[in-house]
Nucleic acid binder design. Structure first.
Length: 612
DNA sequence: GAAACCATGATAACTCGT
DNA sequence: ACGAGTTATCATGGTTTC
């Protein structure tokens, strides 16, 4: 469909026309060095535009055009000045998370007077903020190393102001009440955060409590309320398919719904931050898990968020009705990755792997900045997939751009940007948009560089495209560190390239025994290589087929190890993923139905451990 | 209507053992 | 040189949500 637009013939541009002369010219080093538009990076463009006078300045408009709210742009620019576009962009990117979250809260009608928005609005009015000259750290933000400080910069801004207010410093409870919070809320926040906590943290806590309460109510309302679908066209997935496989297995299923009553739309959270992400301490710290779901063993299940209708409802129904935690990894790294996680892990005191990974394209891939066109406004990548754009596509893009004298027209821009987003291309030369290299994907996905080295290029892309984003998963698993200081026994299903193992290792959680179930020999080799290279002390046992994980074997392992502390895995998404044109058959598809083996194994483990 | 999406399969090109 | 197996390359929509 996307490509058809390039053949419509309605435009003067013929995307498929080969022009060898132009290609030759562009490929020559001299022509590349002659580029007059080398200051193509967004921030460079903005930096140049910022020198112009007038209000609102071009830089303000440019950031607004990038999608940032005007109030936020003007606030940040008033903070940082117009001369440091990098810092402005970084701050906006991070702050937008907070802002959009706050904005989304407006959806909950009973917190219409949400205080965080008041805080946001108040910021530009405050005159006693530290000047840019007094904040050298903000002036020279190093995109390579300072990312982790972004949000704390904002927090510290609040804190600085707080300390200027002696009354607040003396009695934060009074300050909170003055801000409109109830005495109960203020008291609870102080009890939870401590009396010395900065005001911003206290506000955050109260906001989080609001969110928790609102989200619970809203989620209950949204998840499974039935409505009549408006579309006439029936999904090929939603009707007439039952979980015959499960029923045949005889496994006890906590099934409350059929497909017929779960075909309503799943409302994914926006922003997709689950129970909270780093830099935004808006966490739901308590949730009521069903008794039978409470660990140990802890379990952690993952799959794509954007499934055909009804899939997550079915998954949830087989996993103790625990609501999925939907998180987009773009809050952790430079690429989007919208995933749902169902787990019974505690939510309190999560922490991310340090240092926090780069979260923008320029920070992750600084060499691309040199070639980045000003009109490509992407600051993060789309989801890492299992295959990459073709070399011919890169050629088509280059030819199209070469034909333009100076900045391309809107039609060309639209085509190029569309393809860049679709295929996650980055700028690696003049008019050259190319796919990411495997080692770049390893960086973005949180794996050691060369983690997948030694296998074919296709296998590397496939493995990484199917993998956990390590930082995202690690954040959720981090609570295990205090629970199991001596290490854990892990049953890792559908291990892939070992995302769970890498996450635990990077968290500093020792693995005593790992049963790793993975069909692909290539992936098993990658895990084994990593296991040896990182000098793991524990035992790693490979199982090639999930069907080999029988009750008897589970019983043997449990008797031998004393039980599994964590059952973790993301079952195949092949038949769920939006990229699948041919066999997106839903949870009953050839590959994705292996989810039921996850359920089977988890139930067996719990049963054996419970009886012990 | 725009945007996004842990993909699949056909075929060409390549590798390697005989 | 041959052939089997492996790897690289490319084109291919549709569902879902906002």
């Amino acid at each position: 469909m996307d490509d058809s637009s390039s053949h419509d013939g309605s435009d003067s541009i013929d995307w498929n026309t080969e022009d060898e002369l132009e290609i030759t010219n562009i490929l020559s080093p001299s022509s590349a060095s002659m580029s007059t538009t080398t200051n193509a990076a967004v921030t460079t463009e903005l930096r140049e535009s910022s020198s112009s006078s007038g209000y609102p300045s071009k830089i303000v408009n440019d950031f607004i055009k990038m999608g940032f709210p005007e109030v936020m742009v003007t606030k940040v620019i008033s903070e940082l000045g117009e001369n440091n576009a990098d810092a402005i962009l970084d701050t906006l990117l991070t702050y937008s998370v907070s802002f959009s979250y706050a904005f989304s809260l407006c959806l909950f009608d009973y917190i219409h007077d949400y205080k965080a928005l008041q805080i946001v609005d108040e910021i530009p009015q405050q005159e006693n903020r530290p000047s840019q000259e007094n904040r050298p750290n903000d002036q020279n933000i190093n995109p390579q190393s300072n990312f982790e400080n972004e949000f704390s910069d904002f927090d510290s801004d609040f804190s600085d102001e707080d300390t200027d207010e002696s009354s607040e410093k003396d009695d934060p409870e009074v300050s909170l009440i003055d801000m409109g919070y109830s005495p109960e809320e203020a008291s609870a926040a102080l009890k939870r955060c401590g009396k010395d906590a900065p005001l911003s943290e206290l506000v955050d806590f109260i906001s989080a409590a609001h969110v928790s309460k609102a989200a619970d109510a809203e989620m209950d309302k949204l998840y499974f309320t039935s409505h009549i679908p408006k579309k006439d066209k029936k999904s090929k997935l939603q009707k007439g398919k039952n979980c015959s496989k499960i029923e045949n297995t005889g496994i006890k299923i906590n099934r409350k719904r059929s497909y017929d009553d779960v075909d309503d739309a799943l409302h994914l959270p926006n922003p997709m931050i689950g129970f909270g992400v780093p830099r935004f301490s808006c966490q739901v710290v308590n949730r009521d898990l069903p008794k039978e779901a409470i660990g140990p063993p802890y379990f952690f299940y993952e799959n794509v968020a954007l499934t055909p209708k009804g899939v997550w409802a079915t998954i949830q129904s087989h996993l103790y009705e625990i609501k999925p935690e939907f998180v987009d990894s773009n809050f952790f790294c430079a690429a989007a990755r919208k995933r749902g996680y169902i787990h019974n892990l505690p939510l309190e005191n999560r922490f991310p792997i340090q240092p926090l990974p780069p979260r923008t394209i320029f920070e992750a891939l600084p060499e691309t900045q040199k070639w980045w066109p000003s009109w490509d406004e992407r600051v993060q990548l789309n989801c890492v997939l299992t295959c990459i754009g073709s070399a011919q596509l890169t050629d088509r893009i280059r030819i199209a751009l070469d034909k333009c004298d100076g900045e391309p027209n809107l039609h060309v821009k639209k085509y190029v940007i569309g393809q860049c987003k679709k295929w996650n291309l980055v700028w690696t030369g003049k008019n050259r948009a190319a796919p990411l290299e495997p080692n770049e994907l390893e960086l973005i996905m949180g794996y050691p560089i060369n983690h997948t080295r030694g296998v074919s290029r296709s296998e590397r892309y496939k493995g990484l495209g199917n993998a956990f984003q390590v930082d995202t998963v690690a954040y959720q698993l981090s609570v295990l560190k205090d629970l199991y200081p001596e290490g854990i026994n892990v049953l890792s299903l559908f291990s892939g390239i070992g995302g769970a193992e890498v996450a635990l290792h990077r968290l500093g959680i020792p693995m005593k025994n790992v049963i790793s179930v993975e069909k692909s020999e290539v992936c098993r080799g990658i895990i084994q290589g990593w296991w040896e290279q990182t000098n793991q002390k524990g035992n790693l046992i490979h199982i090639s087929d999930v069907q080999e994980v029988t009750d008897r074997k589970l019983e043997g392992w449990i008797r031998s190890f004393g039980g599994f502390d964590l059952v973790i895995g993301g079952s195949p998404c092949n038949n769920l993923a939006g990229g699948n044109r041919r066999t997106r058959d839903g949870l009953e598809g050839e590959h994705s139905s292996l989810f039921y083996d996850y359920v089977r194994i988890l139930n067996t483990v719990k049963c054996i451990m419970g009886s012990n």
